[in-house]
Amino acid sequence: MNIFQAVKENVTARQAAEQYGLKVNKNGMVCCPFHDDRHPSMKVDKGFCCFACGAKGDVITFVADFFHLAPLEAAKKLAEDFQIPFFIDNAKKRNVSKKKEKPKRTLYQTEKKFEEWERESIRILSDYLHLLEEWKVSHAPKMPDEEWKAEFIEACQQTEKINYYLDLLVFGELQDRIEFLLDSGKDVKRIEERMEEYRRNNKEQTGKSIGSEGNEL
């Protein structure tokens, strides 16, 4: 087992984030350290993904980007900080030093269309999840006998499913993500249309309300 395997089998991106001073909330969200993030937009678990700037990868990528290190140096730092024993054969060390690392994004560049769809889907689902969480608070019944509003019902019904979709797209295997595209791509599009319709109606209602107040004056 090489150092990369040893580290990834023993440390998660969430553990690394907490180790290096980032505050992770109970939902596994944290303010992204790779852009000016004012509210938590990065999810950390085994790996990490920022729904705002698109940064994603495994625990070694996270530490490499966080401390501006080469992947090997990041792996060594994790092994030392988390006290993970590892062994690298001297011959392998020489071979590694002679080889140039291939950019990790090469595979994604060859699958540009899928990558664009995946990023867009993550953005849509993340926006929808924020909206659902907002509805759970703003449209929650104030009294026990109060009738539940449609937005509150939708938030209760959809939050768990959308969290599952995001986890699959962020941390799932490539084949699972491709199958999600084939099976649920239309669902994501409908969610986007649903949000656009809600925001349009909300904007119209706000405009009418302001107009009514103006007439009264």
Rank of each mutant, 00 (worst) to 15 (best):
4 F>P: 02
111 E>I: 04
122 I>H: 01
192 E>C: 08
15 Q>R: 06
138 S>M: 08
13 A>G: 08
154 E>G: 05
105 R>Y: 14
144 P>H: 05
13 A>R: 07
10 N>R: 08
142 K>E: 14
40 P>V: 04
43 K>Q: 10
149 K>V: 08
138 S>L: 14
197 E>F: 09
148 W>D: 15
77 K>S: 04
212 S>P: 05
101 E>Q: 05
164 Y>W: 10
213 E>F: 14
113 K>Q: 14
95 N>Y: 09
85 P>N: 10
16 A>H: 04
25 N>Q: 10
46 K>S: 13
1 M>D: 13
103 P>Q: 13
126 S>W: 09
15 Q>K: 13
199 R>A: 05
129 L>M: 07
135 W>G: 02
2 N>D: 15
21 G>I: 04
183 D>K: 14
173 E>Y: 09
115 E>L: 09
64 A>K: 01
209 S>A: 15
143 M>H: 12
34 F>K: 04
166 L>E: 02
160 E>Y: 04
103 P>V: 10
67 F>E: 06
142 K>W: 06
187 D>T: 15
35 H>C: 14
149 K>H: 10
216 E>L: 14
18 E>R: 08
23 K>S: 11
164 Y>M: 11
38 R>C: 09
72 L>F: 02
100 K>V: 02
48 F>L: 07
173 E>W: 08
20 Y>S: 06
142 K>C: 11
3 I>T: 01
1 M>T: 15
172 G>V: 06
87 F>R: 11
44 V>G: 03
62 F>S: 07
155 A>F: 02
34 F>V: 07
39 H>A: 12
67 F>I: 06
154 E>Q: 15
82 F>S: 03
215 N>P: 00
191 I>W: 00
54 G>P: 02
87 F>E: 11
29 M>A: 12
39 H>R: 11
183 D>N: 15
64 A>W: 00
150 A>V: 11
117 W>E: 03
24 V>K: 01
193 E>K: 14
65 D>C: 06
27 N>K: 12
134 E>I: 05
88 I>L: 11
61 T>W: 03
205 Q>T: 08
27 N>P: 03
178 I>A: 10
185 G>K: 01
133 E>V: 04
186 K>M: 14
174 L>V: 13
38 R>E: 12
95 N>P: 00
200 R>S: 14
13 A>P: 05
2 N>P: 07
84 I>N: 03
213 E>V: 11
202 N>V: 00
120 E>S: 13
199 R>D: 03
96 V>H: 10
64 A>F: 00
175 Q>P: 02
95 N>R: 12
204 E>R: 13
71 P>F: 00
173 E>G: 06
180 F>A: 02
83 Q>F: 04
82 F>D: 03
154 E>L: 11
202 N>S: 15
175 Q>F: 15
40 P>L: 01
87 F>W: 10
179 E>Q: 13
129 L>C: 00
54 G>D: 04
151 E>H: 09
102 K>Y: 09
22 L>K: 11
193 E>P: 00
62 F>L: 09
84 I>T: 04
178 I>P: 07
203 K>W: 09
180 F>K: 03
